[in-house]
Simulated scan of single mutants.
Amino acid sequence: MRFLSRRLVMPNDLNFAGSLFGGRILEWIDEEAYIFASCQLEAKSLVTKHIGEISFETSAFQGDVVEFGLEAKKVGRTSLSIACVVRNKQTKQTICEADDIVFVHIDPETRQPTPHGKTKEQLDKIPIEAP
């Protein structure tokens, strides 16, 4: 798994207890996973179909830098399944994991699923640039 992106936890990202709000991290995961899927498939017309179990392990606090590790798990004819791990950049402690995020490639005009034309083997060969 490659850690490709980072975010700074700001005051507006916190919950009432002063730690990173779970809803904010879910928003970030969906966005980061979309960017990853879009780059892997070289396609913009993707929609989130499914986000499986999310496991929260530790907290993050104001001033922490969190990083997002992403990898393609499964490639379907019209879909791509992704795993994401969010961890603290400094301590490397896992903050949360989402092991089953599914995006579907759609036709921009009909909004119906359409083949993306990629295989797992092709995606595994794509060089991934680190920030």
Results as ranks from 00 to 15, higher is better:
residue 81 S to D: 15
residue 102 V to W: 06
residue 49 K to H: 05
residue 114 T to L: 14
residue 72 A to V: 12
residue 104 V to G: 05
residue 21 F to K: 03
residue 52 G to E: 11
residue 67 E to Y: 11
residue 129 E to V: 03
residue 17 A to D: 07
residue 4 L to D: 00
residue 1 M to Q: 06
residue 14 L to V: 00
residue 96 C to H: 00
residue 99 D to A: 13
residue 124 D to A: 07
residue 55 S to M: 10
residue 40 Q to R: 09
residue 76 G to R: 01
residue 1 M to L: 10
residue 96 C to I: 04
residue 50 H to Q: 04
residue 34 Y to V: 01
residue 28 W to S: 00
residue 46 L to T: 15
residue 38 S to F: 02
residue 54 I to Q: 14
residue 82 I to N: 12
residue 50 H to G: 01
residue 53 E to D: 13
residue 50 H to I: 08
residue 59 S to R: 13
residue 7 R to A: 13
residue 34 Y to F: 15
residue 34 Y to S: 01
residue 64 D to H: 14
residue 74 K to W: 00
residue 72 A to F: 00
residue 60 A to R: 04
residue 94 T to Q: 11
residue 60 A to P: 03
residue 90 Q to K: 15
residue 103 F to A: 10
residue 45 S to R: 13
residue 118 K to C: 10
residue 78 T to F: 12
residue 94 T to W: 00
residue 122 Q to P: 02
residue 77 R to E: 15
residue 119 T to Y: 04
residue 46 L to V: 13
residue 14 L to S: 04
residue 20 L to V: 08
residue 22 G to W: 12
residue 45 S to V: 09
residue 47 V to A: 14
residue 130 A to N: 08
residue 109 E to P: 01
residue 89 K to H: 14
residue 87 R to H: 04
residue 20 L to T: 03
residue 39 C to H: 14
residue 89 K to E: 09
residue 98 A to P: 05
residue 79 S to G: 05
residue 103 F to S: 06
residue 127 P to D: 05
residue 78 T to G: 03
residue 92 K to Y: 14
residue 126 I to M: 06
residue 20 L to A: 02
residue 42 E to I: 01
residue 87 R to C: 10
residue 24 R to M: 14
residue 94 T to E: 12
residue 49 K to L: 06
residue 86 V to Y: 10
residue 56 F to Q: 13
residue 24 R to I: 07
residue 14 L to G: 09
residue 25 I to D: 03
residue 35 I to G: 04
residue 47 V to C: 02
residue 54 I to T: 11
residue 87 R to A: 09
residue 108 P to T: 06
residue 31 E to L: 09
residue 102 V to G: 12
residue 62 Q to I: 11
residue 108 P to N: 04
residue 1 M to E: 11
residue 48 T to F: 03
residue 43 A to W: 02
residue 57 E to C: 08
residue 107 D to G: 10
residue 103 F to Q: 11
residue 12 N to P: 04
residue 93 Q to P: 01
residue 60 A to S: 14
residue 7 R to Y: 07
residue 4 L to V: 15
residue 47 V to H: 07
residue 29 I to M: 15
residue 21 F to W: 13
residue 15 N to T: 08
